[in-house]
Computed example of a mutant assay.
Amino acid sequence: MSESVVDTVVAHLRGAIGAEPQRASVTFLGVEPIDVLRFVDTAEGGDEVVFASAGCARHPMTDPSDLAADPVRGPRAEVVVRMRSRGELAGLHTAIAVLAAAPAVEGVILGADALVDLSEPLWTGSSCTAVVLEPDAIPDCPLPAPMSPVEFLRAVPITANEAAWVRLRGVDELRRAWREAGIDVADPHRVAVDPSV
């Protein structure tokens, strides 16, 4: 059943994005593999690259302290990262797999506005070490009842200083600062903002 969920998610992503992905598999000790799909914008002049996990939604996310957790019902999600780059962004697929494995490894429940700190660069040379999550434009992927549909959460890379601000003031203040500064959060070379200014 869990692999059919992964296959359904991959097919849904292909249809929603309209392209064939490159696919890499990342394995963690004691956890089923997480696949990371990389979709490249092939339109002339296009530079968006969409990364998406496939494997986080194998099982519903549950509170690890809940000894009677339902193995079928419950929220399911996959992680999406959207960047404007033709560069390699080496290591980003591993960071995405770490995020997607967090529910199974650490009992984290991924959801909108959550802050997840990886404490290391998301890709080689990046100043971003954490992400904030928000609903992605990809529509939910339906699964057979009684399973919940799979939600796609966009993971927006942020710096350690921006993560500290989120902890103090909340993610909405950070988003406000981005808007006011005209920040493109999909630019891998963007500057960090200081929302206190």
Rank of each mutant, 00 (worst) to 15 (best):
R23C: 13
S2G: 15
A192D: 15
A114T: 11
F28H: 12
P144S: 00
E78M: 05
D140P: 06
S119L: 13
T94H: 06
V50A: 06
S148T: 04
W165V: 08
V171H: 01
A24C: 14
R154T: 05
R190M: 06
T8D: 04
P71K: 01
P121V: 09
S196H: 14
A192V: 11
L168K: 12
A57V: 04
L118E: 05
S119T: 11
T62Q: 06
G111S: 14
P142V: 04
L99R: 10
L143P: 09
A112Q: 02
A137E: 14
R73K: 07
E44R: 13
R86F: 08
P121A: 10
V185E: 05
A24W: 12
P75T: 12
A137H: 15
E134D: 13
P188R: 09
A145W: 11
P71I: 03
E48K: 08
P121N: 11
D70K: 03
G15K: 11
T42Q: 06
A69N: 10
S25T: 13
S85Q: 11
P60F: 01
V50Y: 11
L133G: 05
P149V: 11
V132R: 07
V98Y: 04
V9T: 01
L122F: 12
V80P: 00
P64Q: 03
M147I: 00
